[in-house]
């Protein structure tokens, strides 16, 4: 059975100028994990909000566990857990206070709320910090508490919006561990991320979205194949740029990506180290000694380059806009 379906979701902002969702289609099989991968502004949060009943789309249909999210939001709320992009807990209260409050709001008895809080604090390694106000928590602790709060009543379907954005590598590893445990417990999970690696680690299937649409869908392996697997990256001196471009173009059948500033030429390759050796040989034959040469595993940018034929330029603009917005706060 499908745990989540979304059909032709449309949502615009600013009187139609911004298309946050532009005919989005999704479905997630029960008990599996779908990673929704996309750059800033792709529509990830909007998708999650629609599915978690927070936002009514302009048109389209969506169900969670067979229940219509637009017609029957209250029923959907009983079976979902949501942890939004930014940890949403009461900063003034302690971790303990928060879990009790959310437990009570899920209609647990006072006693049940307490024992569940104890369990969750233990599970998320927050027992020691339980009596401290959230204000004093680190970003990672906050995130974990936020996730804990969405698991109070074991949800059938869980939505995690960028659960590791802003965490350091250690925090990210910890969070992945926690999420993997949850998945073993049988929950259906929809998780959004900007990192291919994260989707790779956690998801059974990946949906790549851009401009409010799913532009590719498949397992991590099949997507990587589409991207062309690894990338060949070569840095050379200025006077050798042109020659090197020709060599790389001969080895790769996909579009080159050239960064004149970094003097970096890169392209997807399918033959792995063979491509690397070939490139090195050709360069050597021309008397070019690269400053750097190597194979890189695919990044989100590569997925985009390959899937849309353009680098996600808007992504960079929005990153800047986002950064200045945050500074303004």
């Amino acid at each position: 059975m499908k745990a989540i379906t979304a059909e032709e979701l449309y949502k615009t902002y600013d009187k139609g100028k911004i298309k946050a969702l532009d005919g989005l289609n999704l479905d997630v099989e029960e008990g599996t994990v779908l990673g929704v991968l996309g750059p800033n502004g792709a529509g990830k949060t909007t998708t999650v909000r629609v599915l978690a009943t927070l936002l009514v789309p302009d048109s389209g249909r969506a169900t969670v566990s067979g229940i219509d999210v637009i017609k029957n939001p209250q029923e959907v709320r009983k079976i979902i857990g949501l942890s939004g992009q930014y940890a949403a807990v009461d900063e003034t209260l302690t971790g303990w206070d928060n879990l009790i409050m959310f437990g009570r709001l899920y209609h647990l008895s006072a006693k049940a709320a307490k024992s569940r809080a104890i369990e969750l604090l233990e599970q998320f390694s927050l027992t020691d910090a339980a009596k401290r106000p959230i204000r004093t928590y680190s970003g990672g602790m906050r995130r974990r508490l936020d996730l804990a709060a969405s698991l109070i009543v074991k949800p059938k379907v869980l939505f995690l919006d960028e659960p590791t954005t802003g965490l350091d590598p250690r925090g990210r590893q910890d969070m992945w561990g926690v999420i993997n445990e949850l998945v073993k417990g049988g929950v259906t999970l929809l998780l959004t991320t900007q990192y291919l690696e994260e989707a790779d680690q956690l998801a059974d299937e990946i949906a790549v979205i851009d401009h409010g649409k799913v532009i590719a869908r498949g397992t991590s392996d099949s997507l990587k194949k589409q991207v062309g697997g690894e990338r060949l990256e070569i840095v050379v001196e200025n006077q050798h740029m042109a020659a090197t471009k020709e060599i790389v173009a001969r080895i790769s059948s996909s579009a080159l990506n050239v960064d004149e500033g970094l003097r970096l030429i890169s392209a997807p390759v399918t033959t792995g180290s063979k491509a690397l050796i070939e490139a090195a040989k050709l360069l050597d034959k021309m008397g070019i000694h690269p400053l750097d040469i190597g194979l890189k595993r695919p990044s989100l940018d590569d997925v985009f380059l390959s899937l849309t034929g353009h680098l996600a330029e808007e992504k960079k603009d929005e990153d800047l806009a986002l950064a200045s917005k945050k500074r303004g706060r």
């Binding site: 909000r49 978690a52 009943t53 927070l54 209250q74 709320r77 009983k78 979902i80 949501l82 939004g84 992009q85 930014y86 940890a87 949403a88 807990v89 009461d90 900063e91 959310f102 709001l105 899920y106 209609h107 709060a149």
Partner: peptide, 13 residues
């Protein structure tokens, strides 16, 4: 602003 309202709205209350 802190997203708490959205959180509350996702609960069956």
């Amino acid at each position: 602003q802190k997203g708490l309202i959205a959180r509350f709205r996702s609960l069956p209350i």
